[in-house]
Amino acid sequence: MAPKPAVKTLPRRGSLIDGVKGNLQALIVGLKYFLDPKRFTLVYPKEYSKLPKGYRGFIILNKQKCISCAACARICPSAAMKMIRIPVKDPKTGKTRMKQYPVINYQRCIFCGYCVDVCPTEALYHVPYHDVVYENLSEMFWDLETFQKEPEYKTAKEGSPVKFLIHEEYGLIKVPAEEGG
């Protein structure tokens, strides 16, 4: 049980007959797929692919769980996660003290998911979509309020969800998926 080298021989170009045969073979394969096509194209705005659970999409903050440890900002490889300090009123004592929370810069975020993985309280989580675009750069620096809301997901309203399954015969196949969830 170990890798071993294996010298193989290359099929060489043969006579004219082989050439004709090769061309015919290619045409027959083409014809085969013409008669039995394997279509799995996503008709994008009318359909959108429902991404599986655990997909590393946009990152959202659950402020209630955040303990202000700043681990997410420290581990962020592209310095997209920043900490801001805001005054928070303590419900028990009524005193106001400064607390720090993460905000995110989607101009830089690389969706590596380190911040989600490092968060000791699971205050950060991924939402399984990724197809959000912007016309202005400034919209992409999310303040604390935006960071707690999922981004406006226009696609979902436009189309119907589909998911892709791996099929033995057809490779990927497209099947309708139920909304939400």
């Binding site: 049980m1 170990a2 890798p3 071993k4 080298p5 294996a6 010298v7 193989k8 021989t9 290359l10």
Partner: peptide, 13 residues
Amino acid sequence: YDQLDFEIPVFEE
């Protein structure tokens, strides 16, 4: 990789 059984294909041309 040393516990798996596979070949390293080599061609001479």
